[in-house]
Design a protein around this nucleic acid. Sequence first.
DNA 1: TTGATGACAGACG
DNA 2: CCGTCTGCCATCA
Length: 106
Amino acid sequence: MGSRTDPADLSAERTQRILDVLRSIGPGEVVTYGEIAADAGYPRQSRFVGRVLATTDEEVPWWRVVNAAGRLVPGHEREQSALLRAEGVAVEGGRVRRATYGRFRG
DNA sequence: TTGATGACAGACG
DNA sequence: CCGTCTGCCATCA
């Protein structure tokens, strides 16, 4: 057996950590990719978060994730804004208000 | 193996 | 507000 860790395993571990953080996001909370990456223990790896969301089969609250500018997910803006509004999050002009993100919620 | 790509972020102009 | 460039790193042609 290889004593060196396979890249696939490292990737899987990061993926699990990120999924874990995603599952910890509660209703009404809105978090950025960078925040999720940092919470998972991988600061500055926000792109990885996007990839996980785009490829995973797990049921994670993807609609509670926005980019640093508060922009909604490209191609899912309509559904995402509907889901967020249903949780009481203010969405205006295809983006979430700054004051609504973070673990604090308002 | 290299180069391009991406549900990103931050700095610049 | 927008576009461009760099950093980050797995994935794909």
